[in-house]
Simulated assay, not measured.
Amino acid sequence: MVGERVLKYSVYGDTGGVPVLSQGGSPSTRWKRPDVGRAAEECGVHLVIPDRPEYGGSTRKPGRTVADVVEDVTALADVLGWERFAVSGGSGGGPHALACAALLSDRVTRCAVSGGITPPLVDGPEPDGDEEDPRRNRTSWLAARGEQYIRPSIEEAARSIMSGVEAGGPEFPPDPHFPTPLVPARDDPDAMARLTATFVTSHDGWVDDNLAFANDWGFSLDEVHVPTSIWFGSADDRARKYADLLTAAIPHAEPRPYTGGHIQPANAFRDLLQWLTLS
């Protein structure tokens, strides 16, 4: 519990290993595929993944900012008995990991962000989808105008994803750099449970993440002074542009490109975990 709110989390890997608190993407929940646990075990990492408010059963916190994640992370680290720990965040989890690095610098040892974003540019006319600067995007522009503008877009995206799954699609989009047999997610109960938790029952969390991204984050990127790595895939042009912006804005950030798309392949994920264990 954090005050009157429920905070759900899952534990993976080596419970005697290096403590790492990881923030999932937008949307994403604490339930991860078995390969995540194996990678954490192999890298000697005690990996804890919390659900942000209104994901996976965590209580909603309307009006939350990106920086508000620090309250939950502090409470969870105290329960776990972690005085010092590393943080990571994928995609929409990146800003939340950076918030911890900026505002909990006395406790956070390292910060790794994969496919992360920066504060968006939300003034001016509605972006047309061909903007060179990824900070000008339609999702953030809509979110800056209120929940009633962004929710229909998110619900339509969720319906589209689940329609593809119901038609026999895989749990994750295929990565052309790492071809694997496409297993229909509908044939895997565990995969369907993860997809349902993410795209069916967590719309409020997804909405609130986007509202938080489109408003004041509650900290600035130049406040991040812990060692920070910014990971991005060779096939993810949007993430590469964001990585350039992040490494320019964060004093101790270093770019870490990998071969692949927006979702890290197993080898890149292991490299990220190993980087977090460095002293």
Score class of each variant (00 low, 15 high):
residue 140 S to C: 01
residue 141 W to V: 05
residue 143 A to K: 01
residue 143 A to E: 04
residue 143 A to C: 03
residue 144 A to P: 02
residue 146 G to M: 06
residue 149 Y to F: 14
residue 150 I to W: 00
residue 150 I to P: 00
residue 152 P to R: 07
residue 155 E to T: 12
residue 156 E to K: 15
residue 158 A to P: 04
residue 159 R to V: 06
residue 162 M to N: 12
residue 162 M to D: 14
residue 162 M to R: 08
residue 164 G to S: 12
residue 164 G to L: 15
residue 164 G to T: 10
residue 167 A to R: 12
residue 167 A to G: 07
residue 168 G to P: 12
residue 168 G to H: 13
residue 168 G to N: 10
residue 169 G to N: 01
residue 169 G to C: 01
residue 169 G to T: 00
residue 173 P to L: 09
residue 174 P to R: 08
residue 174 P to F: 11
residue 174 P to D: 14
residue 177 H to P: 00
residue 181 P to L: 13
residue 182 L to F: 11
residue 183 V to L: 14
residue 187 D to A: 08
residue 187 D to N: 11
residue 187 D to V: 07
residue 188 D to P: 09
residue 191 A to W: 03
residue 193 A to N: 09
residue 194 R to V: 09
residue 194 R to E: 07
residue 194 R to I: 10
residue 196 T to P: 09
residue 199 F to S: 11
residue 200 V to L: 12
residue 202 S to C: 03
residue 203 H to T: 12
residue 204 D to V: 00
residue 204 D to Y: 01
residue 204 D to G: 00
residue 205 G to E: 08
residue 205 G to N: 00
residue 205 G to R: 00
residue 206 W to S: 02
residue 206 W to D: 10
residue 207 V to L: 09
residue 207 V to R: 05
residue 208 D to H: 06
residue 209 D to R: 12
residue 210 N to W: 06
residue 211 L to S: 00
residue 212 A to D: 09
residue 212 A to V: 08
residue 213 F to H: 11
residue 214 A to D: 02
residue 214 A to Q: 00
residue 214 A to M: 03
residue 215 N to V: 05
residue 216 D to Q: 05
residue 218 G to Y: 09
residue 220 S to P: 03
residue 221 L to Q: 11
residue 222 D to H: 10
residue 225 H to M: 11
residue 225 H to R: 15
residue 225 H to E: 15
residue 228 T to N: 03
residue 228 T to V: 10
residue 229 S to G: 08
residue 230 I to S: 06
residue 231 W to P: 01
residue 231 W to D: 08
residue 232 F to Y: 15
residue 234 S to D: 14
residue 235 A to F: 06
residue 236 D to H: 04
residue 236 D to M: 01
residue 237 D to I: 04
residue 237 D to Q: 07
residue 238 R to Y: 06
residue 240 R to P: 02
residue 241 K to N: 09
residue 242 Y to C: 07
residue 243 A to N: 04
residue 243 A to D: 05
residue 244 D to W: 08
residue 244 D to K: 14
residue 245 L to H: 04
residue 245 L to I: 05
residue 248 A to F: 06
residue 249 A to E: 07
residue 249 A to G: 06
residue 253 A to P: 02
residue 254 E to P: 07
residue 254 E to H: 06
residue 254 E to F: 04
residue 255 P to V: 12
residue 256 R to Y: 06
residue 257 P to L: 14
residue 258 Y to I: 01
residue 258 Y to Q: 08
residue 258 Y to C: 03
residue 259 T to Y: 07
residue 261 G to K: 03
residue 263 I to H: 03
residue 263 I to P: 05
residue 264 Q to S: 10
residue 270 R to M: 13
residue 271 D to A: 14
residue 272 L to H: 05
residue 272 L to E: 13
residue 272 L to Q: 13
residue 273 L to P: 00
residue 276 L to R: 02
